[in-house]
Simulated assay, not measured.
Amino acid sequence: MLTIGYLNRAKNAPGLYEVYTTGDPYLVDLQLGTCECADYRYRDGPCKHLHRARFATGEHPIPANADQDRIDEKLGTCTEHDD
């Protein structure tokens, strides 16, 4: 599951979010539309972390044709992590 937070590197930084997956978090900058993950760097385009941050913050609406049963119920929330 992907969650987003703003406790560590993104704390008090407008537009910056940490997107947590099973490993270390990736820093997403919504103002620049970038992510530090390898997928973003090598594909030169939006990755799942960037999409997650955009959906979770409401910057982009969830597509109307998305399967509502498969959407994470916590998608619109930010969580803070202590680790």
Rank of each mutant, 00 (worst) to 15 (best):
T57V: 10
L75F: 11
F55G: 00
D83W: 09
L30I: 14
L30F: 09
K48V: 10
A66C: 13
D24K: 09
K11F: 01
P63W: 00
V28N: 04
L16R: 11
A53T: 12
R70H: 09
G76L: 13
D83A: 09
R43H: 13
Y42S: 03
Y17D: 04
K74N: 15
I62H: 04
M1W: 00
C35A: 08
A10E: 00
P14N: 03
D69H: 12
P61T: 03
I71M: 09
L50D: 01
N65R: 02
A53P: 12
L50F: 06
E73W: 06
Y26P: 00
R70E: 14
R9N: 03
A66E: 09
I62C: 14
N65E: 11
K11Y: 00
Y42M: 09
L32G: 02
D72H: 08
T34G: 11
H81S: 11
K74P: 01
D72N: 14
P61I: 02
A66H: 05
D69A: 14
I4K: 07
L32Y: 04
V28H: 05
G15D: 01
D82S: 08
A56I: 02
V28C: 05
C47N: 07
E18V: 05
C78G: 14
R43K: 14
G45C: 15
E18T: 06
H81R: 13
K74E: 15
G45Q: 14
D69K: 14
E73P: 14
E80Q: 15
K74V: 06
E80V: 08
N12P: 00
G76M: 10
N65P: 00
Y40W: 15
N8K: 13
I4Q: 04
E73D: 14
P14F: 01
L75H: 13
T79A: 15
N8E: 07
E18P: 07
F55S: 01
G45A: 13
N8V: 02
E73M: 11
C78D: 10
